[in-house]
Design a protein around this nucleic acid. Structure first.
Length: 417
DNA sequence: TCTGGGGTCCTAGGACCC
DNA sequence: TCTGGGGTCCTAGGACCC
């Protein structure tokens, strides 16, 4: 039988902040989305105060002040680096592993004796905490979906929970609402509700054929996984098919010039990711939009795709293409909230089809880009950048309360006095 | 005043092929 | 009045995930 373990970091972003500031222990913490817009992570103390996930920050300000909640802008450099440390630690215990998200990984532990599993997972928890400072919970199950369910229980109990036993599954699935399952969100929960299905055990016992008609093959797989029939295996990391970079501006913009700067900056970020996975893009999509929440403002949104003659990962070419698109979709007279760029039709750099009429066997840009990437990796992001990205960057997003990038920026190292 | 960003997969329908 | 039977590829839209 297959054995899946889902390792999930507890309140990951909040835990990262605590690692470097022990004063935050037991203090409620929220972490905000980009631009300090929404609450995207909460410590247990905040969850206990019934402050929901994903709500606008400004709506909660009074409550936050009242309970002396520590507020952090998101610090993705820190979280990304901490994530890598956690994943590296896990890999030492289970080479057969899928990094599922920034704070979760599935492990295959089939090789262990069933009775040793709990002990082994307890050791994993202890070691990850010791090595990285991040607390994790582990759910064990015969399928990924059940391991996810087990993880929920683990979080509420002692940190490790095994759901492989049938009676245990019955007891837990009976009290679990379908909405809490991995793969069921609002729309599907509503549809299931109309079919009279509320709990996970009702869904498990439903007809796979009927569920397939309602929720496609994705729903059928979910039913089978709940029955202990493994349909989802560990997945290898595949190169991305699209790469997107977009952000809201710190303040609404009306002029084209600062929008073009922001766009160039996002394009440069997207190209870094593109080169990291050794791909080239064959098309670029650019969009602009106003702030839909401001109902009294005139609204406009538009997007345009531009095909490239030769697949490229050269930031200069992508910036040029992005500006070309922006020139065509920008309309004066609106207050813009956001722009973004998407790199499309990505292909491996090595598999590239040469263009009949383009001089593409020489790529002087490749060496330049590699050098730019290396400098920024060694000395921190933005050590060198393209002039088109601008210098003053009035469009830059708000991040008023970001903690130091302790582990990736030399001049922000933790000081001990 | 303030409302995130970045992905994936599946299906249906249309265009087109032989 | 009758109007084939397969395919593939692409796109848009809808659902989901963190």
């Amino acid at each position: 039988m297959k054995v899946f373990a889902l390792v999930d970091c507890n309140n990951f972003y909040a835990s990262c902040e605590r690692v470097f500031d022990p004063r935050l222990k037991n203090r409620p913490i929220v972490v905000l989305s980009n631009n300090d817009g929404c609450i995207v992570a909460r410590s247990n103390e905040v969850k206990a105060l019934d402050i929901p996930m994903g709500v606008p920050f400004f709506e909660q300000k009074a409550l936050i002040r009242k309970h002396d909640i520590a507020v952090f802008s998101s610090n993705y450099q820190l979280y990304g680096d901490m994530s890598q440390r956690v994943m590296d630690s896990l890999r030492r215990f289970a080479p057969d592993m899928e990094v599922y998200s920034i704070d979760e990984a599935f492990l295959r532990l089939d090789h262990l004796q069933p009775r040793d599993l709990i002990e082994y997972c307890t050791t994993i928890r202890t070691k990850v905490l010791q090595w990285t400072g991040i607390p994790v919970s582990i759910g064990i199950g015969p399928t990924k979906v059940l391991a996810k369910v087990a993880n929920r229980v683990a979080k509420k109990q002692t940190g490790v929970f095994d759901i492989r036993d049938q009676k245990t599954q019955d007891a837990i699935l009976k009290t679990l609402h379908v909405r809490k399952l991995w793969g069921i969100a609002r729309r599907w929960a509503e549809r299931l509700h109309r079919m009279g299905i509320e709990t996970a055990s009702q869904l498990r016992d439903a007809s796979p054929v009927i569920i397939r008609k309602q929720l496609s093959v994705v729903g059928e797989r979910l039913v089978r996984e709940l029955r202990g029939q493994s349909c989802l295996d560990l997945e290898d990391v595949q190169p991305r098919k699209n790469i997107m970079s977009s952000k809201s501006f710190g303040n609404l913009l009306t002029e084209k010039a600062p929008m073009a700067e922001a766009l160039a900056n996002y394009a440069a970020r997207a190209c870094e990711k593109l080169r990291q996975q050794n791909s080239r893009a064959q098309a670029v999509y650019v969009f602009v939009q106003t702030n839909g929440f401001r109902e009294t403002d005139a609204q406009y949104s538009n997007g345009l795709t531009c095909t490239l003659t030769v697949p490229t990962s050269d930031t200069r070419t992508i910036i040029e293409a992005a500006k070309f698109c922006l020139n065509r979709i920008y309309r004066p007279g609106y207050r813009y909230k956001k722009t973004g760029v998407m790199l499309l039709d990505l292909i491996p750099a090595a598999l590239e089809q040469q263009h009949l009429f383009a001089d593409s066997d020489q790529r002087p840009g490749d060496r330049l880009m590699a050098t730019v990437d290396r400098i920024n990796e060694d000395h921190g992001p933005d050590t060198v950048f393209f002039g088109a990205e601008g210098i003053h960057r009035e469009w830059k997003m708000r991040c008023g309360s970001r903690s130091p990038r302790y582990t990736t920026q030399w001049n922000e190292l933790l000081r001990v006095s």
